[in-house]
Computed example of a mutant assay.
Amino acid sequence: MLIVKNIRLSRIIRNTWQVDLIMIVSCTVAFLAHEYLIAHHFIVPTIIPGVLGTAIAFFIGFNNNQAYDRWWEARKIWGGLVNDSRSFARSLLSYVPKNAANDEVVRRMILRHIAFLYALKANLRSTKDLIYIKYLSEDEQQQVEKQRNVHNAILHNQAKDLEKLYTSQLDGFKFLDINNLLIKFSDEMGMCERIKNTVFPTTYSYLTKVFIWLFVVTFTLVISQDMGWWAIFMGWLVGFVFVSTQINGMSLIDPFENNSSGVPLNQITRTIEINLLQMLGEEEVPAPVMPINDEYVL
């Protein structure tokens, strides 16, 4: 997630240079086609790029709105995970009767929750992030890795340990309170998976790209009649506005991707990890995730 107010020119160039080169070539070809072919036969009506520009505005507006909705929903889900994780640890530490056996179960459940978060993050980013292993026993690690959905298997083990606590004189209302948090974790996990597994309609993104290229070519053809060689530069400049806006929106389509535009899962997960370990009274606590180049966090 970008944390700066102004985007560096180097980032803009890095994200758009390939498209810029293709646009310049397209504008050059359009200008040459006008000068040596079209200009001798007919005049390109100005209404053509005007209509295309209007259509592109609708498509880009829809794409960007839907992309931001996906990103913002993902951010709200992980914001909820932060709050619910703290409540979960606080409830376990406060509600469960104190004795050696219960204290061991509570500690195991809190550490297992950190493992759940890291396993969920790895799944959402389609990476092999094995940090969660250090918060599970060897037997449990082998058991959960037999299942396709590791984080769901971890959550299932949480329910088993909660049942053990219930049989150890945990008050029924307090049991329901903690169990409701497990249900919330399951809901939040499912919502994340829904966003990840729901593909953005391909027709919208594809047609937007097609319309932009048609617009750039027709716009260059129209202004070539009055601007000469400068039409190549102006065609690229106007096209750059549409292309960069569309690229900006598309970068939010997959909010869990490990890039500068995605939801900062590393930072959020590490924050929860630090909070829960400190609540347990652990001395060895990892450092917070720091911004990269003072520009973004992952």
Score class of each variant (00 low, 15 high):
residue 197 N to F: 01
residue 225 Q to L: 10
residue 213 W to E: 14
residue 174 K to C: 03
residue 194 R to T: 10
residue 227 M to K: 12
residue 183 I to M: 06
residue 218 T to M: 13
residue 162 L to R: 12
residue 241 V to D: 00
residue 235 G to I: 06
residue 170 L to P: 04
residue 223 I to Q: 08
residue 189 M to F: 05
residue 195 I to L: 13
residue 162 L to T: 14
residue 173 F to A: 11
residue 180 N to F: 03
residue 174 K to P: 04
residue 173 F to Q: 12
residue 188 E to P: 00
residue 218 T to P: 00
residue 201 P to N: 08
residue 235 G to M: 03
residue 204 Y to P: 03
residue 223 I to M: 05
residue 212 I to V: 08
residue 184 K to P: 00
residue 241 V to G: 02
residue 160 K to Y: 07
residue 198 T to E: 11
residue 163 E to W: 13
residue 174 K to G: 06
residue 172 G to T: 13
residue 180 N to I: 02
residue 187 D to T: 11
residue 185 F to L: 07
residue 215 F to Y: 15
residue 181 L to C: 00
residue 199 V to Q: 15
residue 231 A to R: 12
residue 228 G to R: 04
residue 242 F to N: 05
residue 194 R to N: 11
residue 193 E to L: 11
residue 228 G to Y: 01
residue 206 Y to V: 08
residue 219 F to H: 07
residue 178 I to T: 01
residue 190 G to L: 02
residue 233 F to K: 04
residue 172 G to Q: 14
residue 165 L to C: 13
residue 183 I to E: 04
residue 247 I to T: 13
residue 179 N to Q: 04
residue 180 N to K: 13
residue 177 D to N: 09
residue 179 N to I: 00
residue 212 I to T: 06
residue 168 S to P: 06
residue 191 M to W: 05
residue 222 V to I: 04
residue 230 W to F: 10
residue 161 D to L: 11
residue 197 N to G: 00
residue 180 N to Y: 04
residue 226 D to S: 14
residue 192 C to K: 00
residue 169 Q to E: 15
residue 187 D to A: 10
residue 243 V to E: 14
residue 204 Y to A: 03
residue 239 G to C: 09
residue 226 D to H: 06
residue 210 V to F: 09
residue 220 T to S: 03
residue 173 F to D: 10
residue 185 F to S: 11
residue 241 V to Y: 09
residue 235 G to F: 07
residue 200 F to T: 12
residue 166 Y to C: 04
residue 188 E to T: 01
residue 181 L to D: 03
residue 163 E to T: 14
residue 201 P to C: 01
residue 166 Y to F: 12
residue 198 T to S: 12
residue 213 W to S: 14
residue 183 I to H: 01
residue 244 S to N: 11
residue 219 F to T: 02
residue 189 M to T: 06
residue 181 L to P: 04
residue 161 D to R: 00
residue 245 T to G: 12
residue 224 S to C: 01
residue 196 K to W: 01
residue 182 L to V: 09
residue 188 E to V: 00
residue 205 S to A: 14
residue 222 V to C: 07
residue 233 F to E: 02
residue 176 L to P: 08
residue 184 K to V: 04
residue 220 T to V: 06
residue 170 L to W: 05
residue 248 N to S: 15
residue 176 L to Q: 15
residue 231 A to G: 10
residue 171 D to V: 07
residue 207 L to F: 13
residue 222 V to N: 05
residue 225 Q to D: 15
residue 224 S to E: 01
residue 238 V to N: 00
residue 232 I to P: 01
residue 240 F to K: 14
residue 204 Y to E: 05
residue 235 G to S: 05
residue 206 Y to Q: 09
residue 196 K to H: 02
residue 199 V to Y: 14
residue 217 V to S: 07
residue 195 I to K: 06
residue 189 M to V: 02
residue 220 T to C: 04
residue 203 T to F: 13
residue 230 W to V: 02
residue 228 G to L: 09
